[in-house]
């Protein structure tokens, strides 16, 4: 092991990890407000990537310009899914049911994507996708840097919304206690719908960057959702800061394992880290220790 490998792993951790953190933030936000584990987040990322792909191939719209269309579209997809399936989902078995319902949604979208786009891998293209520059001995791919900047901008916007606006106060109140939030006049249902929309909308940006840096097809979503779930559990479910740190940390650990042992073990390392951390802290790094969990 040498300094360059360490630097390179740190760079990947921050650049790629921030994009994972963005996708995981959507997931953890939805869980925090609604107690819903959205297993469909993986396939929605792929759907976002395919939307960018379709815009690029059929209308020659640049990937970043296309986000102006794909982000609102994915927001609407989220709102529709929430209205159709989660309004009715109430009661103590809500979280367990939400996993299965979102999985069924995920299967439905996967089947449709397979039929429309075939199962062959595609990757998003652009003049800038394969360009890179170097600082010292460390190389930076343009698309990775752009993904990092995009993730930082969107995450900052999200934090601003949550901590500096009136709507953000309603969201945080709903996270803290739904019943009390409703009692002081917050429309928890409306907050839930919008939060679900936002949580899904971030997949458009995450999916575009993911699709430009990886070849993908609909079944790639299994790999994605397992990583995203690992991130939110590791960070502590419902914790935004935890998702950010765990996203960066996960990619960093994976890269280090790849350099020290072999790349074949790098994806396994996340899950091992998760198991070890949970032995010590069952609630995750930043999770709240709740006395009674339904």
């Amino acid at each position: 092991m040498n300094a360059t490998a360490l630097l390179s792993a740190a760079k990947d951790g921050i650049l790629t990890g921030s994009v994972y953190a963005l996708m995981a933030t959507g997931l953890t936000l939805i869980f925090g407000v609604m107690d819903i584990i959205n297993i469909a987040q993986g396939i929605l990322v792929i759907l976002g990537a395919y939307l960018s792909y379709a815009l690029q191939v059929h209308w020659h719209i640049d990937l970043f310009v296309g986000l102006l269309i794909t982000i609102p579209t994915m927001f609407l997809v989220g709102v529709v899914i929430e209205r159709l399936f989660f309004r009715r989902l109430t009661g103590p078995e809500r979280t367990g049911m939400s996993i299965l319902v979102t999985y069924a949604v995920s299967l439905l979208i996967e089947g449709a994507l397979n039929m429309i786009f075939s199962v062959n891998d595609v990757q998003l293209q652009g003049s800038y996708v394969n360009k890179s520059f170097a600082i010292g001995s460390v190389h930076f791919g343009f698309i990775y840097v752009a993904g990092f900047v995009l993730a930082v901008v969107l995450l900052s916007a999200l934090y601003f919304m949550l901590y500096r606006t009136r709507f953000g106060v309603s969201v945080r109140a709903s996270v803290a206690d739904q019943t009390s939030a409703a009692l002081v006049g917050i429309d928890v249902k409306r907050v839930s719908t919008i939060v679900f929309g936002i949580g899904v909308a971030v997949t458009a940006a995450g999916g575009m960057i993911y699709g430009a840096t990886n070849a993908f097809n609909a079944s790639t979503s299994y790999d994605l959702i397992s990583r995203l779930l690992t991130i939110i559990v590791l960070g502590g479910m419902g914790s935004l800061g935890g998702a950010l740190l765990a996203g960066v940390g996960m990619v960093f650990v994976g890269d280090m394992v790849g350099v020290i042992w072999s790349p074949v073990w790098s994806s396994m390392s996340y899950f091992v880290v998760l198991a070890v951390v949970l032995l010590v802290r069952p609630q995750g790094l930043f999770g709240k220790q709740s006395a009674r969990v339904a």
């Binding site: 779930l229 396994m268 899950f271 949970l278 032995l279 969990v293």
Partner: peptide, 27 residues
């Protein structure tokens, strides 16, 4: 390991353990 946590987290840990086994069988 998995039953140290309550329900929602348990679900996710079983998924993670599944991937450990799948990747192990492959590698």
């Amino acid at each position: 390991i998995a039953l140290r946590v309550r329900r929602h987290t348990f679900v996710v840990i079983t998924i993670a353990i599944f991937f450990i086994f799948q990747l192990g069988a492959i590698n």
